[in-house]
Write a protein that binds this DNA or RNA. Structure first.
Lengths: 261, 261
DNA sequence: ATATCGTGTTCTATTATTCGGAACTATCGT
DNA sequence: ACGATAGTTCCGAATAATAGAACACGATAT
């Protein structure tokens, strides 16, 4: 017989099995066989075989009481391996630490994955007024690039054609009180980010959350990551904060960059 | 044809595909097709098909220069979903934070997975003398239970037959200067942990690293997690530290337990 | 109590899907 | 230039996956 219909040379079973894993999200942590089967348009028996395989390998666990399934600790190992593979994270760790020590604010290191930004390390600032995200955002979290400081720092330095294609694919949803939902306004802002070397998020992702980010450039010139400091709301003007924290932030980004291959 | 030889009713393709993902470890972050094929005893063409599938789904990435593969960011999403499914982590977060604020030391929350302990949350203490593990250990890290404070707190409250079967399966490898490598000595210590409600790690996992842990009991009485504080080496005697920190630690563990279903 | 529905689970004949050898191409070091 | 090794593609053979039906169990409704 011919190879798989559309994706030539791809493994259907593996694809389906992974789809099962991906059906579990932070919002839907336990799922039953029938639920999964329906969601992925598979028969119950097929779904069960995959689930049994995943369970026997430790990627899923079955709840004794409800007989439903949830993600197993084995998955954490994989995630951990991924993080470890990002040597950038290790190189950056002491610099992030220092940034938080000098500014008092939570600092983050993020990379871009397509239209999103992924948090790959964070150092929490002094305990104080937390906003909601302080708890929700964890290492590994994914947030839309267009409404975050690190995201804009990363987008701004993308080659123009790539940026255009990317922006065409995303919808600029209103996430916070000042989210930029107009494509041209966003493009103008990204141009400014390129000029100043700093990106800003002023309650664009969530109320009361502001942040300033700087890009980390590899020797090749390519922007490979971004560092930010998250600032809980205060009466201080954003421009004042940028003046105060910008140089420190850029120095940190440069220090990290200096250690990247 | 009959179903798969040994594991009846399991999916070979899924098993193999996941084996490929698991071949990537923090120590081996990039692998080529031939390397993988050899390691898993598969042909290159079969391996390539799985790898292509994983790549098209974002679980692997191909390095443009070397043509080798590494784990993709998609894997992080899974790990994050797993962490989120551990509601325990959320409940415990503020208490961990408080524990670190009052003691000044790094505190950790861990659960057991078979013979290992998995770190599911951590709050770093004041910057100061770090030992090696401070950087190596991350949320998601896995360490052997027998030579860690949290591990011993978790093992101690296991039903005796389960504990025996588990200990038979592990080798008590010397990891730090004071690792307990004798099974009877370990059993005696676990008995003491049951009496005092506190477990101790005095340079058993790594030089200069000491920790004290307390078990978190669900209402059912079952020990579901353990909290610890990690203490960089100091001339203070371990027993003195236990007297000083023990009550705070147990109070924290109880506060967390009170919020568990 | 009894019936009904919905679970998760097991079985099996059929066939679509995966398998692996061989051929192809690109890159590297000699 | 050359050989060696890498990743990649092809295609017929046949294995491993498929889906339907039947089972066992529990919860709910009658």
């Amino acid at each position: 017989m011919r190879q798989a219909a559309d994706g030539a040379g791809l493994s259907q079973s593996l694809e389906r099995g992974l789809a099962i894993l991906c059906a579990f999200t932070p919002g839907r942590t336990t799922l039953g066989i029938s639920e999964l089967a329906h969601e992925l348009s598979l028969t119950r028996s097929t779904t069960h075989r995959y689930v049994a395989t995943l369970t026997s390998l430790g990627f899923l666990e079955q709840d004794d009481a409800t007989r439903k399934y949830r993600l197993g600790p084995r998955v954490l190992d994989l995630g951990f391996s991924t993080l470890a593979s990002l040597e950038l994270r290790e190189l950056a760790a002491p610099h992030l630490r220092r940034l938080t020590d000098t500014t008092g604010h939570t600092s983050n290191l993020a990379i871009r994955d397509d239209t999103d930004v992924i948090l790959i390390d964070r150092v929490r600032g002094r305990p104080g007024r937390y906003h909601h995200l302080e708890f929700t955002l964890q290492v590994g979290s994914r947030i839309p690039a267009y409404c975050s400081a690190t995201g804009k720092a990363l987008l701004a330095h993308l080659p123009r054609p790539d940026l255009d294609r990317l922006l065409d694919r995303i919808e600029l949803v209103q996430r916070g009180p000042h989210t930029k939902t107009d494509k041209n306004a966003l493009l103008a802002e990204l141009a400014q980010v390129r000029r100043t070397g700093l990106a800003v998020n002023d309650e664009e992702l969530e109320t009361a959350l502001r942040a300033i980010a700087a890009p980390v450039r590899a020797r090749s010139g390519e922007v490979v990551a971004a560092v930010n400091v998250a600032i809980p709301w205060s009466p201080v003007a954003m421009s004042e904060l940028v003046n105060r924290l910008g140089p420190t932030l850029q120095a940190t980004a440069n220090d990290i960059a200096a250690r990247v291959i």
